[in-house]
Design a binder for these strands. Structure first.
Length: 510
DNA sequence: CTCACTCGGATCTGGGGC
DNA sequence: GCCCCAGATCCGAGTGAG
């Protein structure tokens, strides 16, 4: 099975969508083959719908909606044309139309009458169950020599020498360990082949259908789900869609410790026997409060040793939730920023100099360097002279640090990052470690295709387009605006797609 | 059903500066 | 008294595994 399992009805593709979302919700929900049925039966939508639907006759597309897609870098005439042709088929379909028109638009007039048949009109809805079943490849009960890579199912020979044996020595299969025995055929569609290579990262546990959608916009390449717990002492479940070769990967050396006690030996003497944690959960951006730490300390101080089950349960739950470490008698504390830097594979003091809160925020949003470097390691032999990199949502420079630690020279890096403190961190690190050219861009919207073309002409093309889009609207821990690929943050992903598309077509043309 | 886990955000609070 | 900022605090749902 090379690609997603497709179903024809797309019934639950966007079920997490809030329904009263005005102009777009209805058309999103109507995505798919059953759109006409949806629109005719969806009469319980609250309030008057302002949905843009050309089928409604005279009502044209709203200026705000047009502007939204223009802000994403599409020309107005393309937006209008795509909206007209798309009708009620939903925003996904609309984006695909936009991308198609943009690509074709290089050679064709906009009103040339593109055959809409060339654009998928149905929402394919893969069985999401299958996606996450690939977390762990281990044979049940066996000590696998394979990496936690869904692509590596078929061959032990692809595992790194002497490396992968370390990966799973102590791991339970937290995701069931069902080995589906499903070799993943890595035959990329021709238009997905590099160069440029691309690498897109996002949280694995996104709402239903999100990965299906992301995948569809990236040549239907199946994401590679990897938990960074195989690379360091903290979990980090992420999906990566890329067109890199899968063979001959190698890990960064030295291999980081993969248990808490190895990573932080000084905690051993305080670690109670009834705390079974050997690794941390996913490092997040928010930290526990001092009040909670005090509550835990008081509860333990007033208990026997070992404490009664009720107290143990309370303390363990909070420790797991907030990634607390034992730093004294009855005393737990959150990880320090430099400890997070270490776990994530960054050099010491990489983020030092900004406020503590900002360090936590930046680190919590970052790549795990060893994990990403493992995937990128195949580039080292391919680019002995160095690479030109387009880096999206660079944050504190996880991709750049990974390439650097792999010994890959970066001739030019164009980095798009909104946060000023993050840009400063990357700039500072760059000036200390690199000889190449770093160009930092704060606003992705200013990276127009004209500007991309100018860069391509200047540096001779990009070798790697890498990015992890901010996931504040995708992660399960976000209770407020978990709106998948439909919220305002979603445009960042579509920016990535747009610009990747643009880079490819420009490079093919030149 | 219960349980565990999740690249977070809105609001409050307190201090500094004016 | 007021604004501003940064830190502190409190807030819970979606999802999958068992």
């Amino acid at each position: 099975m090379a690609h997603w399992v497709r179903e024809s009805d797309g019934s639950d593709s966007f079920e997490w969508d809030s329904d009263g979302n005005g102009e777009e919700a209805a058309s999103f929900n109507a995505a798919g083959a059953s759109s006409s049925a949806m629109t005719s039966t969806n009469t319980d939508a609250p309030g008057p719908s302002t949905r843009v639907a050309n089928g409604n006759g005279k009502a044209g597309p709203s200026a705000a909606l047009v502007q939204k897609y223009m802000d994403m870098g599409f020309a107005e005439e393309i937006v209008l044309k795509a909206m007209k042709d798309n009708g009620d088929n939903g925003a996904d379909s609309l984006i695909e139309l936009l991308l198609t028109y943009q690509e074709l638009g290089n050679d064709l007039k906009v009103d040339n009458g593109f055959a809409s048949g060339c654009v998928p009109q149905t929402v394919d809805d893969s069985d999401d169950d299958d996606i996450l079943e690939n977390w762990d490849d281990e044979d049940a009960g066996g000590r696998s020599t394979r990496v936690a890579s869904s692509f590596d199912d078929s061959g032990d020979e692809t595992a790194g020498d002497g490396y992968c044996g370390n990966l799973s020595d102590y791991e339970d299969n937290s995701y069931g360990g069902r080995n589906k025995g499903r070799p993943v055929d890595r035959s990329l569609p021709s238009q997905a082949m590099g160069p440029p290579y691309f690498y897109y990262e996002n949280v694995a546990l996104a709402p239903k259908g999100v990965w299906t959608t992301i995948s569809r916009f990236l040549y239907d390449i199946q994401p590679e789900f990897v938990d960074s717990k195989y690379f360091c002492a903290a979990a980090r479940k992420r999906g990566y869609i890329h067109n890199l070769p899968l063979e001959n990967r190698s890990p960064l050396l030295p291999i980081p410790p993969k248990t808490i006690s190895e990573a932080f030996p000084h905690t051993r003497r305080w670690w109670p026997s009834w705390d079974p944690r050997r690794q941390f959960n996913c490092l997040q951006t928010c930290m526990s409060s001092a009040k909670l730490l005090e509550r835990i300390r008081v509860a333990l101080t007033n208990s026997s040793d070992p404490p009664p089950p009720r107290v143990q349960k309370f303390v363990l739950e909070e420790c797991r939730k907030w990634n607390l470490a034992w730093v004294g008698l009855n005393k737990v504390a959150p990880l320090e920023p430099d400890e997070m830097e270490f776990l994530l594979g960054f050099p010491k003091d990489h983020t030092r100099g900004i406020s503590r809160t900002e360090r936590y925020r930046s680190l919590g949003n970052s790549f795990q360097v060893d994990t990403v470097a493992y995937h990128l390691s195949v580039l080292k032999d391919m680019y002995p002279q160095g690479m030109n990199v387009l880096s999206f949502f660079s944050g504190i420079g996880g991709a750049e640090v990974a390439l650097h630690r792999l010994g890959i020279r970066m001739k030019t890096v164009i980095s798009v990052e909104k946060s000023e403190v993050n840009r400063t961190i990357l700039k500072s690190w760059w000036s200390q470690t690199q000889t190449g050219l770093l160009i930092e861009i704060s606003d992705v919207q200013t990276l127009t295709s004209e500007r991309i073309e100018a860069y391509v002409r200047r540096i001779g093309g990009f070798d790697l387009v890498i990015g992890g889009s901010p996931c504040n609207n995708l992660a399960g821990s976000n209770r407020h605006h978990r709106d998948g690929l439909e919220g305002e943050h979603s445009s960042l992903f579509y920016h990535y797609v747009r610009i990747l598309d643009s880079v490819k077509s420009i490079m093919e043309r030149l």
